[in-house]
Amino acid sequence: MKKVFSRTSSLRDVDTHYCSGCGHGIAHRLIAEAIDELDIREQVIGITPVGCAVIAYNYWNFDCVESPHGRGLAIATAIKRVRPQNIVFTYQGDGDLAAIGTAETIHAANRGENLTVIFINNAVYGMTGGQMAPTTLIGQKTATSPRGRDIGNEGYPLKISEIVAQLPGVYSVERVSCDSPKGVLKAKSAIKAAFKNQMDNKGFSLVEVLSACPTYWSLTPADSLDWMQNTMSKEFPLGKIK
C-alpha cells in the first residue's frame, strides 16, 4: 500500500506529557515539519526554555541545548556566532522571553543576530501552576492575579513583538494563532519563513504564536479556541508586524 502520510523525521515517536488541548504539541510539530521541509534537521540546534516546554528535546529529533530561564537568546547568540553554519532557533514562552529574559530578547534583536525565535504566548505561566504572565490579559484571573489582572497593580499586557519590531536590527516579526486549522497553517508558513530567513542570512526573525493553555485558563480545549479567536487575538492582533 502506498504510504501517503507519516510522522516527520524531526519528531520522535513518544507519548506527550502536555495537557489536553495544549498548544505546545502543535507548535513542536510545526517546527519539526518546517525543518524537514527545508531539509536542515542535521544543521539545526534548538534552544529549549525553562517552562512546560523544557523537555521539547524529548519530542524533537535534532541537537538541542537547554537554557536557564530567559537566557535562550544569549545562548543562541553565542552558538550562532561560533557556528554560523548551523541553523539556530530558540523556543521560548511568555515568561521566559518577555519577563525574565526581556533584556536578552531586546539585545539579541538589536544586535540583529541571524536567529529564529519561536515565541509561544499563552498568557499564563504553565509549568509553575498558572500564575500571571507579562502577556496576561487585563482582567484575566490567574493564580497570582486572583481578582483579575489590574492595570493599577500589574500594568498592561506586554506586546514584545511590537517592541522588537521597532529595532533596526530586526528583519521579520509576525504574530500567528493556533486557534483553527487555518491559523495552524498560517503559523506553519510563518515558522518556515523564519527559518528560511536565517538560511538566507537575513537576520533576526521572530514568530509569536498564540497558543492554548486550557488547564490554566480553566476552559475546555474547544472553549479555549473560542477565547483565542474572540478575546486574546483582540489584545494581540494577528499578522505581519514587520
Partner: peptide, 15 residues
Amino acid sequence: LAAINMVFGASAVGA
C-alpha cells in the same frame, strides 16, 4: 547574566 550564558552556549557547541 548574558555574558555567562553566552559562555554556556559557546561551550555547548565545543568552543
